[in-house]
Design a protein around this nucleic acid. Structure first.
Lengths: 100, 100
DNA sequence: CTGTAGCGCAACCCAACGGTTGCGGGTATA
DNA sequence: TATACCCGCAACCGTTGGGTTGCGCTACAG
């Protein structure tokens, strides 16, 4: 799924931030957040499909760990756009200097 | 508005990419994309409220220019999370070395 | 002045999203 | 074995999002 969509929800971003400090489970998060466990579970599924998180089953509970590689998709896209932007600015500067 | 939400839509991302090569107007984009001008206009409003774009009125048309500063909000959030993640990994490494 | 091109506003429609509740199935623990 | 605990699946609901159509306004060109 899309990583930007996964991060578009404030609750999911908060979860990602939480997971940066260590792995968590769904019920664990449901105690910190004002929504039900099933809602959390849906959010975690979204983060999983976006490749932002790894799920590892341990006995009866499922532990979710942050996947830093998934975040790179975001930065790569942004830097790609930023690069094109910078190149355009460079071209504009070149032209204006040729003008003068 | 939220910058992650603004980038969560594929059409809006495509528009941002297009604007990286230079300013555009709504009707200009509506000729390249398979949706109506009003839909484009809504998307541009979303990008504007997210601070990703600057709108400058010129006569009867409105020219939209990419605002690279808005993209920094994305990278800053990602790097913030990534930093916390790296610190955690460093702590784990420290503990394991103390163990051995 | 008349026509055309670009834009904004408002109403409407359908699909998707975030959230809830209820239930059933594994897995520890007493 | 009985009993909690953690989880997944499914159904359902209200709200929002992306998109369309229609109308009216302003600005430029003939």
């Amino acid at each position: 799924m899309d990583v930007f969509f996964a991060l578009s929800d404030p609750t999911r971003r908060q979860m990602v931030r939480q997971m940066a400090d260590g792995p968590v489970t769904a019920t664990e998060l449901s105690r910190q957040l004002p929504i039900s466990r099933q809602a959390i579970s849906k959010h975690l599924a979204a983060l999983d499909q976006a490749g932002l998180v790894k799920r590892q089953v341990e006995g009866r509970e499922v532990r979710y760990t942050l996947n830093a590689d998934g975040l790179e998709n975001v930065t790569s896209w942004v830097s790609e756009v930023g690069h094109a932007w910078d190149e355009r600015l460079a071209r504009l500067k070149k032209v204006s200097s040729r003008k003068s």
